[in-house]
């Protein structure tokens, strides 16, 4: 069974890019446009991993991580932050919110895939 990933990004380009990269790598990919969208899909999708952007409208990545960790649905799912940001303060904030890891955009396809494999159980 392939890993199911919920990829959250407000940019259509990024979503498409993630969909293509991750599908090619053999993952099941479900896309969400922002934190709210992701939370709404969460119960149906039951992902093995969430990959999220930080800067998004409606609910940003921090909000999403926080809501997932405090929620009833998959509170312990690994969450990787995928963002152009690289500030240490933001990383620390993501970590303390309960993010599992951090990947900086633009990402390298292979590294993205191997990182996902490292933090999500097959």
């Amino acid at each position: 069974m392939s890993l199911r990933i919920l990829a959250v990004d407000d940019s259509l380009t990024m979503r498409e890019m993630l969909r293509q990269t991750l599908t090619e790598a053999g993952f099941d990919v479900v896309l969400a446009e922002d934190g709210i969208d992701a939370l709404q899909q969460l119960p149906d999708v039951a992902p093995d991993l969430i990959l999220t952007d930080l800067n998004m409208p409606k609910m940003d990545g921090f909000g999403l991580i926080d809501a997932v960790r405090k929620g009833d649905v998959s509170p312990r799912v690994p969450i990787l932050v995928l963002t152009t940001e690289s500030a240490a303060t933001l990383k620390e904030r993501a970590r303390s919110s309960g993010a599992t890891g951090w990947i900086t955009k633009p990402f390298d396809e292979q590294s993205l895939v191997s990182t996902i494999r490292r933090v999500a159980a097959v």
Partner: peptide, 22 residues
């Protein structure tokens, strides 16, 4: 985690917020 995260974002209730902004 809870402290810093809730300080950063007004912890929204996914369901109620979702219903109004879908």
């Amino acid at each position: 985690p809870q402290n810093s995260a809730s300080a950063a974002t007004p912890a929204p209730s996914p369901l109620t917020q979702g219903a109004t902004t879908t």
